[in-house]
């Protein structure tokens, strides 16, 4: 299915769903946060769309004055079409519904996004840090992250040695 058809069938199912649609460099749609869990299930289950593969989840920090953002890259093995879904989040309390039970691969991808950006995926069954230690403080890929001077008595910045 080409992107125009995908968008048409989404518009039919959810009126006012797509806030922005474009190509950058792949076709994407930006949607409101509260529509995501219904949309995710629809994208996965609808037999004409059948996005059965979630390639990637990306967290983005648009700067201290702006929002956080999550992007999902979906692919259909059956129909061989792509879609990118973008969701903007409030910086002070970034939460969105987990899709871990729809696409199993989202399990670790969401844990990584949580680890780096502190975005909380509600409904995830095992939301822990995945790369950093459990006692790590802060969210390292956020723009306002401050590198700690010591971690378990080991100096972190070079000039502390």
């Amino acid at each position: 299915m080409i992107f125009e058809d995908i968008k048409k069938s989404l518009d039919q199912q959810f009126p006012d769903l797509v806030l922005v649609a474009g190509e950058d460099p792949f076709h994407f749609i930006t949607i409101a946060l509260n529509k995501w869990s219904r949309l995710a299930r629809f994208l996965h289950n609808n037999k004409d769309l059948k996005f059965d593969s979630l390639h990637c989840i990306t967290g983005i920090d648009n700067g201290p004055e702006n929002c956080l953002e999550v992007r999902y890259n979906l692919f259909s093995m059956t129909h061989r079409h792509w879609l990118e879904v973008r969701i903007e989040l409030d910086r002070t309390d970034p939460r969105l519904p987990s899709v871990e039970q729809i696409w199993r691969t989202a399990d670790w991808l969401e844990r990584e996004t949580y680890d780096m950006y502190g975005i909380i995926f509600e409904g995830h069954r095992d939301l822990r840090r995945i790369l950093l230690e459990d006692d790590w403080e802060g969210w390292p890929l956020r723009k306002d992250y401050i590198t700690p001077e010591f971690y378990r008595e080991m100096p972190v910045p070079k000039d502390k040695i």
Binding site: L132, P140, Y145, T147, P148, M154, P155, V156, P157, K158, I161
Partner: peptide
């Protein structure tokens, strides 16, 4: 610390520490 000597928030700057 190698390539991470300046901005590596997660890297120990030398195992001799």
């Amino acid at each position: 610390g190698g390539p991470y000597w300046q901005y590596g928030y997660h890297v120990l700057k030398g195992v001799d520490l």
